[in-house]
Write a protein that binds this DNA or RNA. Structure first.
Lengths: 138, 138
DNA sequence: ATACTTGCAAATCGTTTGCAATACC
DNA sequence: GGTATTGCAAACGATTTGCAAGTAT
């Protein structure tokens, strides 16, 4: 995992004060090679195992702040669990229902043709496509 | 709203015992002209106003049973709130974020071309497309 | 010095469950 | 009569919040 300096830059860019807790979470989220899909509980456990604990309440608050700041994107695929995606660019998802795991779909892997007319006075904020999968991805 | 006899038929077809509570909810859900998107709380309030109260716990249980029986479809667009759709056929949704309201999109209004390859050993269970709208649909 | 942030514990929200009373066949 | 269903109240899990103590600028 890359160093804290990069995490620091993310926070600065977002205009968030670089506290110890935010640095820990930013590094775990943004300073690894792949994009991630995480829950608050997972990040809480991960910080713990990393030897840099952050209280659960702070994890929740921080993930929400990161989302507001545009560093994360919120995804809802199941009642009662919120996922955060470190990939904030335009893309969609596979959802492995048995495992409760999300996987990015490259933007070009799926194409939406023939979009419907929008109701008057509205604009598209986002289009979410979730391909729900059954079965084992071994 | 059409009579209870039709609601009764829905329950029979689904193999569910026609209790008073189930009949009340089935009628409110299935015996009106449009397809509906409802939450448990809404149905609870509606039964109340209808003069045929059903306890909230029973509303939850019943909506889940209806879903298992294929009479309803569950939709998640927001953390902490589950919607049930009386339209169980293949179709997608507009979601009015400011109002928290769902609206059906006819199946032909949106076309998915170029579907991605699926991971080995998996099959598609369902594809959910939600077009999230900002602004007022007046 | 000041304003912002943290952590804890309590509160909240939507939903589920245990169980005694009740309704259906 | 026997099994399924209901309603209440308590339990639940995820998330949020109030507030006193701690930290960044």
């Amino acid at each position: 995992m890359r160093p804290y300096s990069e995490a620091l830059q993310h926070l600065k860019d977002a205009g968030l004060r670089p506290t110890r807790q935010r640095l820990v979470l930013a590094r775990l989220l943004f300073c690894c090679d792949e994009k991630r899909h995480v829950t608050a509980e997972e990040m809480h456990a991960e910080a713990q195992m990393n030897g840099t604990p952050v209280s659960l309440a702070t994890v929740y608050n921080t993930l929400n702040q990161f989302t507001e700041a545009g560093l994360l994107r919120e995804i809802v695929v199941e009642p009662g669990r919120t996922y955060f995606d470190t990939n904030t660019s335009d893309h969609h998802h596979f959802y492995f229902e048995t495992e409760g795991r999300l996987h990015d779909l490259p933007a070009e892997a799926l194409e939406l043709s023939r979009m419907p007319d929008l109701p008057e006075g509205t604009q598209i904020n986002r289009v979410d496509v979730v391909i729900r999968l059954k079965g084992d991805a071994s």
